[in-house]
């Protein structure tokens, strides 16, 4: 059973990995790269917001820390991209720890915690927009210089595989947590914090571990964004859009489930591409359709896409839903 829990992850990853071998559409690859970056950010959110039940509205904070750490280290100090990547992930973890230390110690839960994450992300956005170090409002532009050592790739397929590798690591981490004592503690904190404490769980420490890990993973997504687009500004890095993307995907896919963020992101982004065909001459129509479908999904498929699966294909759902 220990290994078999990882089989769905391997199957899904393998299926995504062969896409570039079967298809040759760069537009498809580009769509997948962006979806995988969002998936990774959402995986970070899912550990904190899904498994541990601490809803965050401000994961842009971690995404932006990842973006800017990687970009600034390369831009100002010429640090190697991979080293910058590691440092950015560490910075994401540190940001998570600091935010968690401040807010969890103050006993913030529920909406209060959600709002403070939003406030920190906005604060960082304003600072990044004003500081010379971050390139101010003009943002930072990295030199286009494809090569493995620069973490830039000529072909979309290579970058797809890189992003997929990170998502795979994210999946493995999530799965490992789900089957671990730590995971059980997180769930206990989510279900009833006071009861968990009574059972001897060190609630603060468990939450701090979760938010640090969450920050690190979402920061990694930020680095991928920078390496892919080679450009970052305050509204991209710390903007509300990524906070929403990171939370939307797990909620749609299946909150707290290992495959939730992946399934959610691809469902949402696939939907977004599909509704684009409704666009026609009048702007906005496609996003209206998107919104209606989103509300419909929530109304008729509680528990997300995986919840739907559970209703109609319980056996398959049991196998992939952890």
């Amino acid at each position: 059973m220990r290994f078999s829990g990882y089989i769905p992850i391997l199957v899904v990853t393998a299926a995504l990995a062969v896409v570039p071998l079967v298809f040759s559409s760069n537009s498809l690859f580009n769509f997948m790269v962006m979806s995988l970056i969002i998936t990774l950010a959402a995986q970070g959110w899912n550990i904190l917001g899904g498994v541990a039940g601490q809803t965050s509205f401000g994961h842009a904070l971690f995404f932006g820390v990842g973006c800017y750490t990687a970009a600034m280290l390369q831009f100002h100090f010429g640090v190697n991209a991979w080293l910058a990547f590691l440092l950015a992930v560490a910075a994401g973890a540190a940001a998570g720890f600091i935010l968690g230390f401040l807010s969890f110690r103050a006993g913030l839960r529920g909406s209060y915690f959600a709002l403070i994450t939003l406030a920190f992300a906005e604060l960082m956005r304003i600072l990044a927009n004003a500081s010379d170090w971050t390139g101010g409002a003009a943002g930072l532009l990295l030199k286009l210089n494809p090569g493995f050592s620069n973490m830039q790739f000529e072909s979309r397929a290579s970058f797809l595989w890189l992003a997929l590798a990170f998502v795979f690591i994210g999946l493995v981490i999530s799965r490992a947590i789900a089957g671990s004592r730590f995971g059980a503690q997180l769930v206990a904190v989510r279900e009833n914090e006071d009861a968990a404490r009574a059972l001897g769980v060190d609630v603060l420490s468990v939450k701090l571990k979760a938010i640090s890990l969450s920050g690190a993973i979402t920061a990694a997504a930020g680095v991928l964004y920078v390496q892919n687009f080679l450009y970052i500004d305050a509204n991209i890095g710390f903007g509300v859009w990524i906070s929403i993307e990171a939370l939307l995907a797990p909620l749609v896919g299946g909150r707290g489930l290992v495959l939730g963020p992946l399934i959610g992101t691809f469902t949402l982004h696939g939907l977004g591409e599909l509704t684009k065909s409704f666009a026609g001459r009048i702007p906005g129509i496609d996003l209206m359709v998107f919104a209606v479908v989103l509300i419909g999904v929530v109304a008729f498929a509680s528990g997300g896409v995986l919840g739907l699966l559970r209703r109609f294909a319980p056996r398959l759902a049991r196998r992939i839903a952890v």
Partner: peptide, 13 residues
């Protein structure tokens, strides 16, 4: 910028 890039890819195709 993401959507801009995605549209360029589609136009390319």
């Amino acid at each position: 910028p993401e959507a801009g890039t995605q549209e360029v890819e589609r136009m390319q195709e």
